[in-house]
Simulated assay, not measured.
Amino acid sequence: MENAMKQLSDEVHAEIVALCKEGDDLVKTGELPAAKRKYISALDLLPENHREWDAATWIYVAIGDVNLKMKDIERAFRCFFNAVQCPNGLGNPYIHLRLGQIYFDQGSLDKAADELTRAYMGAGLKIFMEDDPKYLDFLETRIEI
């Protein structure tokens, strides 16, 4: 449903964007619980079947990242798992990177290798450069880079 975003009213779309911007600003100042509340408020504005909307993809990613920063790995995983099921989520290198990192840290190495390979195939080495090198080191044991 790639055209779904166009069906949101201008007012709802603007409110979602504003809430997410506020969330982003709060993340930058380290106010993670407040940022998470902003993102959840944005998600709550989506109509029923919210996973069908483009905005849900990036809102779930934002919530997932906040959960990772807050060390709430279980909730972070659920957010990225939801994001991959939203429009343009499957095949999104960033989402696959985060899922792969969580699987790796939990010891699910086959799933980690699958997700990290998807991230690498979609974005190359550069997607690994801002994170702990252990994920790329692991991937190099599984595929030829």
Results as ranks from 00 to 15, higher is better:
1 M>E: 09
1 M>P: 06
3 N>P: 04
4 A>D: 13
7 Q>L: 12
9 S>V: 01
12 V>I: 06
13 H>L: 14
14 A>E: 08
14 A>W: 08
14 A>C: 06
14 A>T: 08
15 E>L: 10
16 I>E: 13
16 I>C: 11
17 V>L: 10
18 A>M: 02
20 C>Y: 08
21 K>G: 00
21 K>C: 01
22 E>N: 02
22 E>T: 00
23 G>C: 01
24 D>F: 00
25 D>Y: 00
25 D>T: 01
26 L>Q: 00
26 L>E: 00
27 V>N: 02
27 V>I: 00
29 T>D: 01
29 T>V: 00
30 G>T: 01
30 G>H: 01
30 G>D: 03
31 E>I: 00
32 L>K: 06
34 A>K: 02
36 K>Y: 05
37 R>Y: 07
38 K>Q: 00
38 K>P: 00
39 Y>G: 02
41 S>F: 12
41 S>N: 11
42 A>P: 06
42 A>G: 05
42 A>D: 09
43 L>E: 06
44 D>L: 04
45 L>Q: 09
45 L>G: 03
45 L>T: 02
45 L>V: 03
46 L>A: 07
49 N>S: 04
50 H>T: 05
51 R>P: 04
52 E>G: 07
53 W>R: 11
54 D>K: 11
55 A>W: 15
55 A>V: 06
57 T>V: 11
58 W>N: 14
59 I>T: 05
60 Y>G: 05
62 A>Y: 13
63 I>G: 04
65 D>N: 11
65 D>W: 10
66 V>D: 12
66 V>H: 07
66 V>L: 08
67 N>I: 04
67 N>W: 08
72 D>C: 04
72 D>W: 09
73 I>V: 12
73 I>L: 15
73 I>W: 13
75 R>V: 07
76 A>F: 13
76 A>V: 02
78 R>I: 05
79 C>Q: 11
80 F>N: 08
82 N>C: 11
83 A>H: 14
87 P>C: 12
87 P>H: 15
88 N>R: 14
88 N>I: 03
92 N>S: 09
92 N>Q: 10
93 P>D: 06
94 Y>G: 13
95 I>W: 14
97 L>A: 08
97 L>Y: 14
98 R>H: 14
98 R>L: 09
99 L>H: 06
100 G>N: 11
100 G>Q: 10
102 I>M: 11
105 D>L: 08
105 D>Y: 13
107 G>K: 14
108 S>G: 10
109 L>A: 04
111 K>F: 12
112 A>V: 04
114 D>L: 03
117 T>G: 03
118 R>Q: 11
118 R>A: 06
119 A>F: 03
121 M>P: 03
122 G>P: 03
122 G>Q: 09
122 G>C: 03
123 A>L: 05
123 A>S: 08
124 G>L: 02
125 L>R: 15
125 L>Q: 15
125 L>S: 11
126 K>G: 07
126 K>H: 14
127 I>L: 12
127 I>C: 10
129 M>K: 15
130 E>T: 12
132 D>I: 03
132 D>E: 14
135 Y>F: 15
136 L>E: 10
136 L>N: 07
139 L>F: 14
140 E>C: 07
141 T>G: 13
141 T>M: 08
142 R>E: 09
144 E>D: 13
145 I>E: 13
145 I>N: 10
